[in-house]
Structures are given as C-alpha cells and as structure tokens.
C-alpha cells in the first residue's frame, strides 16, 4: 500500500511544481527583505508610520482608501500611532456630515471613527480628473494584485525611459513591471518629495518600501495577530496530534493489525 501512497504524493508534487513554475514566469519582481514575510513576520512600526506619511502626502492626492478609518492607524498590529496622534490626524481632515436639524450637510473636523476622506466624491470624478484612468482604491490593493507587496514595490521602482521601439502617448509612462509595460500614473516617488518626520532619509527606495509596507498592512490589518495565533495553534495541534497518535497506538495494540 505504501507504494501507492508514494506514487500519489509524487503526482501531487508534480502538479504543484508545474503550477508554481508557471507562476514564476514573466518578469521577475523586485523583492526586498519584507519584515512581514514568513510565519513569524511582523510589521516595522516606524516604517508603517512613514508609509502613512508617504500615502497621505503623495498617493492620497489621487488614490482613496475608503475602507480604512483613522482609528485603524492607532490599532494594535498597525502603525500604532498614539491616541492623540490619531485624533490629530483625523482632525486634520474635513469630513462632510449631516444632515443637521435644518437638513443641511455641513463639514466638521474628522474623528477617529471616520473613514479616510477621499479626494474625489466618486469613481467617475476620479477617472475624469486623471485622464480617464481611475486611480484604484488602495484599501486592499496589495491583495488584489498578483505578486502582492513585491508587485506594488516593483511598479513604484519600475519607471524607466522607454526603449527606442516603444512609442508612448501623451500621459502614458513606461514601467517595466506593469502589465503591457505602460502605466497612466506618472512616477509618483522622487527623492525628497516627502520629508520624513522621524529624520529618515527619503530616498525613492525607502519611500517605496515604507508605503508598500503601509499598503500591505492596510490590506491585511490583522496579519500580525494571524501569524501569532497561527504559531500557537500549530504548536498546540502538534502536541495534541502526538498525544492522539500514542493513544491510537495503544488502543490498536489490542488487535494484531498495524495502524
């Protein structure tokens, strides 16, 4: 019987190898040493905080993040801004609220419970303001792209002068990691476009890394809790499995059949 099992596993292995080799074709994405990769991966708080700054000062001028609330910025496992910092961040945005008792909409300073304020009122307005290309919402952007964080980082770092044989229309840029190698977003990150409040040198690479880490957290805010719980769960299951294994051996020792 063991021969059959072996063959079955070899077939499975074969299947996995062909599917994974297929995934690995195309352009090789850049893959910096992410702190959140791996089974014990965690976010780097300072990097997330800087990443928020990059998002807020650069990306947010076109890209919304409608699924996030300001309170998320202070939650455990995220950038973990202090309560006061979160309040100040929220209060720096004008939120439309209402209707009031007169039936009028009014604006007020944001509160931590408010969703991130979008610069455009709707998708159509966003597309119209950007030459017909809708800047995608960034809330789950990392999870909605093949390659995830590596892909986002690569696109941010992938701007180049186009090769001679490629002709670009007005408002289209060359990016070697983008599908079709063309992108409607101009290079967003230039050295020094952001002055980090923690004094970190804002190189293009640093900003790309920070903002990608921030977007990864935004797409998967419970990643740290998940890793932590998963680690405990698997250790627990292994202990239980070992106990059950020996119990099984003991019970089956009463009959002459091997298990």
């Amino acid at each position: 019987m063991s021969k059959i099992n072996l063959r079955f596993f070899l077939t499975l292995l074969f299947l996995f190898s062909i599917t994974s080799s297929n995934a690995a074709e195309k352009v090789k994405l850049l893959s910096p040493d992410w702190s959140f990769k791996g089974i014990t991966g965690k976010f780097d708080r300072a990097s997330l905080q800087r990443g928020y700054q990059v998002y807020n000062e650069v990306c947010a001028s076109c890209h919304s993040m409608r699924l996030l609330s300001y309170r998320n910025l202070g939650e455990k496992g995220g950038p973990e801004f202090t309560e006061d910092e979160v309040k100040n961040i929220a209060a720096s945005f004008e939120v439309t609220d209402g209707p009031d008792s007169q039936g009028e909409m009014f604006t007020r300073p944001g509160r931590p419970s408010d969703r991130f304020v979008s610069i455009y009122p709707n998708v159509e307005a966003a597309a119209a303001a950007n030459g017909g290309a809708y800047p995608p919402d960034m809330s789950v952007l990392v999870k909605s792209r093949k390659g995830g964080a590596d892909y986002i980082y690569s696109v941010l770092m992938g701007y180049e002068d186009p090769p001679a044989n490629i002709k670009l229309d007005e408002g289209v840029y060359y990016n070697k990691y983008m599908e079709g190698k063309k992108i409607k977003m101009s290079q967003p990150l230039m050295e020094g476009i952001v002055t980090y409040s923690d004094g970190t040198n804002a190189t293009e690479e640093q900003m790309a890394k920070d903002v990608t880490a921030f977007l990864t957290w935004a797409a998967e805010p419970h990643l740290e809790a998940r890793h932590k719980m998963g680690f405990k769960v698997i250790i627990f299951l292994i202990i239980l499995t070992v106990l059950v294994y020996f119990s099984m051996k003991r019970i089956w020792s009463r009959v002459d059949t091997e298990v």
Binding site: V233, I234, L237, T241, V244, M248
Partner: peptide, 15 residues
C-alpha cells in the same frame, strides 16, 4: 481514534 489522528493531521495542513 484513527479518524481523529488523521483529522488532526488534516487540520494542521488546513491551519
């Protein structure tokens, strides 16, 4: 008990 043992292995992969 045998099903339970196999189930636990399955749950480990699942987890």
């Amino acid at each position: 008990i045998k099903d339970l043992f196999a189930l636990l292995i399955f749950i480990i992969i699942f987890s």
